[in-house]
Simulated assay, not measured.
Amino acid sequence: MTLTAQTAPVTVRRARTSDVQYIRELVAPLADERVLIAKEAVAYYEGLQEFRIAQDAEGNVIGCGALHVMWEDLAEVRTLATHRDWRGRGVGHLLLEQLLADAVEIGVSRVFCLTFEVDFFQRHGFEVMENQSAVDPQVYSELLRSQDEGVAEFLDLARVKPNTLGNTRMIRTVRG
């Protein structure tokens, strides 16, 4: 998919193994600012099929984002990052729109995020989650069995509180 991010052509595509180094480079400054959590390279390789990459007309990787399925009707936007020189130019928008389209394509109806960028996600139809009513109690008990940190963050479990301090839990319905 090639679109224009405020006058510059940007292509959004599925990630490849050669992109992991660039994903890590995009995440590093945001991890230093405690906006994102850096992961080991192996974690990015394991989740590579979840990632989309934004690249400029010269093929430079300028952004990334992932969609992680948590349950039948629920997925999480993860690791949405844009190169600092491209922030505010629509790259994050293009990536998020692609991830939401991916959610619809695979049958997910709700997308969650844990973010400091509340205004950005609100502009894209996300709402602040007020309570745990986002999942049925039976599904909640099933999700408790997950070892995934993102699921623990969604459930607002005490063990992940140090990772989520100051973040806002948001959700959006992407199809009826």
Results as ranks from 00 to 15, higher is better:
residue 5 A to Q: 01
residue 5 A to L: 10
residue 6 Q to G: 05
residue 8 A to I: 09
residue 10 V to L: 04
residue 10 V to H: 11
residue 11 T to Y: 03
residue 13 R to W: 01
residue 14 R to K: 14
residue 15 A to S: 04
residue 17 T to L: 02
residue 18 S to E: 13
residue 20 V to E: 14
residue 22 Y to I: 11
residue 23 I to H: 09
residue 24 R to C: 09
residue 25 E to Y: 03
residue 29 P to N: 08
residue 29 P to H: 07
residue 30 L to P: 14
residue 31 A to I: 08
residue 31 A to Y: 07
residue 33 E to I: 15
residue 34 R to E: 10
residue 35 V to P: 11
residue 36 L to D: 01
residue 37 I to A: 02
residue 38 A to D: 11
residue 39 K to L: 10
residue 44 Y to C: 00
residue 44 Y to Q: 07
residue 45 Y to D: 00
residue 46 E to Q: 08
residue 47 G to W: 05
residue 47 G to I: 06
residue 50 E to G: 03
residue 51 F to L: 11
residue 52 R to N: 01
residue 52 R to D: 02
residue 55 Q to C: 12
residue 55 Q to D: 02
residue 56 D to C: 02
residue 58 E to L: 05
residue 58 E to A: 06
residue 59 G to Q: 05
residue 59 G to H: 08
residue 60 N to S: 03
residue 62 I to N: 02
residue 62 I to H: 00
residue 63 G to L: 12
residue 65 G to T: 09
residue 66 A to I: 04
residue 67 L to D: 08
residue 67 L to C: 07
residue 68 H to N: 14
residue 69 V to D: 07
residue 69 V to W: 11
residue 73 D to L: 12
residue 74 L to M: 15
residue 75 A to I: 14
residue 75 A to V: 15
residue 77 V to R: 11
residue 78 R to Q: 14
residue 79 T to V: 07
residue 80 L to H: 13
residue 80 L to G: 11
residue 81 A to G: 12
residue 83 H to R: 10
residue 83 H to G: 05
residue 83 H to I: 13
residue 84 R to V: 10
residue 87 R to S: 12
residue 90 G to F: 10
residue 90 G to P: 02
residue 92 G to C: 06
residue 93 H to G: 11
residue 93 H to M: 02
residue 94 L to C: 01
residue 94 L to N: 13
residue 94 L to P: 05
residue 96 L to A: 08
residue 96 L to M: 08
residue 99 L to W: 05
residue 100 L to H: 02
residue 100 L to S: 06
residue 100 L to K: 05
residue 100 L to C: 03
residue 100 L to P: 11
residue 102 D to T: 05
residue 109 S to I: 03
residue 109 S to E: 03
residue 111 V to G: 02
residue 117 E to G: 06
residue 118 V to I: 09
residue 121 F to I: 15
residue 126 F to Y: 00
residue 126 F to M: 04
residue 128 V to Y: 04
residue 130 E to N: 09
residue 131 N to K: 13
residue 132 Q to L: 07
residue 136 D to H: 00
residue 137 P to Q: 00
residue 138 Q to E: 06
residue 142 E to S: 10
residue 142 E to I: 03
residue 142 E to V: 07
residue 143 L to W: 01
residue 143 L to V: 07
residue 145 R to Y: 08
residue 147 Q to R: 09
residue 148 D to S: 12
residue 150 G to W: 14
residue 151 V to Y: 08
residue 152 A to F: 14
residue 153 E to H: 06
residue 153 E to A: 08
residue 155 L to E: 06
residue 155 L to Q: 09
residue 158 A to V: 09
residue 162 P to G: 02
residue 162 P to A: 01
residue 163 N to W: 03
residue 164 T to W: 04
residue 164 T to S: 11
residue 168 T to A: 00
residue 168 T to M: 08
residue 169 R to V: 00
residue 169 R to Y: 00
residue 169 R to T: 07
residue 170 M to I: 08
residue 171 I to N: 04
residue 173 T to C: 00
residue 173 T to E: 10
residue 176 G to P: 07
residue 176 G to A: 15
